[in-house]
Amino acid sequence: MRSQLARFAVRRVLSMVFVLFAVSVLVFLIFNVLPGGDPAVRMAGKAHTETQVEAIREEWGFDEPLYVQYGTMMKKLFTGDMISYFTEVSVTEEIRKGAPRTFALAIGAAIIWMAFAIALGVYSALRAGRISDRVLTVLALIGISMPAFWLGAILSYYLGYKAGIFPNGGYVEFLVSPTEWLWHLILPWFTLSILFIGFYSRVLRSDILETMGEDYVRTARAKGLSERRVMLKHVLRNSLIPIITLWGLDFGAVLGGGAILTETVFNLQGVGQYFADAIGQLDLPPIMAVTMFGAFFIVIFNTVVDIAYAALDPRIRLEGGSKA
């Protein structure tokens, strides 16, 4: 049975490697081949000279066959000599600088939103139909529909600029000052979490209510287990499986620079904000690189989620192709 899970994990990791390769090919095609026209001209930007374009064409080998072009792109990406022709700065270097900021935002927010979502989801399910449940439903809907840039701006303005409780955006390295680091991240964390808390707590609430009607929960009560144990070991354990799946996927997306609005509003200068700036200038190399960076995390976390899912629900392992 253990080996079944191991087998499943190996299969998933192998297919993940394949998917990562496919994604890189796709990114290459989308940016350099499919649009038609001269990719070197697009990369050089609006104000370019013929010499610049020629240099870019030479550098990226756009005269060469496609597979050579792909190889050149991947090499540039990993060796760090992919540069933006607007800023003349290494793209890889920029991502390396932004990544810790993005990770700090993502990890902190993911813990906060999961903790609050579980607490509120469980509370709401146990109080289903009562006033407190209804109030939470309304709050969750407000949270889900509140745009991050608006919420971020409001918090930043009132709690930061006006009240001076929190800093007005920006980021401080953890090693420079742990307290300042924390202080600068609290508002971004909550801004990013609100939407997820609203959404996750609703999903968890309905999963719990559904699980409470399962036959095995009735069995657990019939066994004479305490209500607390029935809720924790049977209801919550089984209801958490879908939430953990969602969490893994969203966490991967945020790690990969998906929290563009939050990063920008609080001027965290993470990967997401770098991406937003690059899009604003139509600066192709960073857009390509961050797309790859994001896809990398999404694909990896997809795999992690699949394996976690199989570990949490033994029935899943059978569907991996092994004989029933």
């Binding site: 399962e214 095995y216 069995t219 089984n238």
Partner: peptide, 8 residues
């Protein structure tokens, strides 16, 4: 008996 035992 399938649904009466906890699958996990």
């Amino acid at each position: 008996p399938m649904s009466s035992l906890n699958p996990v």
